[in-house]
């Protein structure tokens, strides 16, 4: 029984990392095509990660090693609650949305702890912006989650997926379109893509949180980002696009990621306080409107 869980855990976490890296590579090619150039092969991200782990790296404090590991494992711990198609790491948990939302912050907090110990003034600025933005996008996202919990009478992703089965008209995307729009904008902030990339801003604060990370630390940062892409697109796929079989699930995830990138490649950058303000007004009012509509109908 125990062995069974360990194998399932490995499958879940490795799938998230490998597919996340694959999405990143495809995304880089996609952006390059938008800019009318070609970029590297689709497996470029794997090469980058192997190279990063082969480099020497410098650690400034044991808290730094610990924090980076905590950030990485925080995201992995969240991924194992996510239903990957019809595959569950813990079949009894069935993907509780509240646990997922709670665990998602651990990744950022671990990263914050790690990079603050590195001692470079740019990294606390970057991570401060990231946490401030998180307050911004968590509001519309949490409202959308509340709406779905209301509608289904359950906080389990399993149940939310079950009610969307049968036909495309059952998808929450068509049932609650305004909530979907709000959540997509929140996804843009979750992934840290433009216009909400004030936290990494290479020209202002020298790539923010990653400024002192070298070699394997940056490698772990890379893996964390890959896992994060898989996790966050996965949640929204399960919430609004009806989950689906394994292949369908991955396709929908990739679609969501490419949608995010195509928005990102045409926008400049918000200042982070403007970003938070934007999250609290436009996406929040979209989701609130849907919530009110739903309550009136009921």
């Amino acid at each position: 029984m125990m062995n069974n869980y360990i194998v399932r855990f490995l499958i879940g976490s490795l799938t998230s990392i490998i597919l996340g890296l694959l999405y990143m590579g495809i995304g880089r090619k996609f952006i390059a095509r938008i800019r009318r150039c070609y970029a590297g092969p689709f497996y470029q991200s794997f090469i980058d990660v192997i190279k990063l782990f082969s480099k020497h790296s410098i650690s400034h404090h044991w808290i730094m090693d610990f924090g980076i590991m905590m950030g990485f494992s925080g995201i992995i711990a969240t991924v194992i609650f996510l239903p990957i198609g019809n595959f569950y790491v813990f079949p009894d948990m069935k993907g509780n949305l509240i646990i997922i939302m709670y665990f998602m912050t651990i990744g950022y907090l671990g990263m914050a702890m790690g990079v603050s110990a590195s001692g470079n003034p740019n990294s606390p600025i970057g991570i401060g912006r990231a946490l401030a933005l998180m307050i911004g996008y968590e509001i519309p996202f949490a409202l959308a989650v509340i709406l779905l919990i209301f509608a289904n009478g359950s906080s389990l992703l399993y149940n939310i997926i079950q009610t969307q089965q049968g036909s495309i008209y059952n998808w929450n995307l068509l049932k609650y379109p305004f909530a979907f729009i709000g959540t997509i904008i929140a996804l843009q902030g979750m992934l840290g893509e433009q216009p909400f990339d004030a936290m990494i801003a290479p020209a202002e604060i020298a790539s923010g949180p990653m400024v002192e990370l070298s070699g394997k630390f940056l490698g772990f940062g890379f893996l964390q980002h890959a896992s994060q892409i898989f996790l966050e697109t996965g949640i929204i796929t399960a919430m609004f696009l009806g989950g689906g079989t394994i292949i369908g699930f991955f396709t929908k995830q990739l679609f969501l990621y490419l949608l995010t990138l195509s928005i990102a490649s045409v926008f400049p950058r918000f200042r982070f306080e403007d970003g938070v303000k934007f999250f609290w007004t436009i996406p929040t009012s979209f989701v609130l409107f849907q919530l009110i509509l739903f309550l009136i109908k009921r």
């Binding site: 880089r28 390059a32 800019r35 009318r36 150039c37 070609y38 970029a39 590297g40 470029q44 090469i47 980058d48 410098i58 290479p202 020209a203 020298a206 790539s207 990653m210 400024v211 002192e212 990370l213 070298s214 940056l218």
Partner: peptide
């Protein structure tokens, strides 16, 4: 895009550590 260095997997980085 004119000469597209990213074809070779190269890219600009912000800090010397990376």
């Amino acid at each position: 895009s004119r000469w597209d260095m990213e074809r070779f997997g190269m890219g600009p980085m912000a800090t010397p550590r990376q």
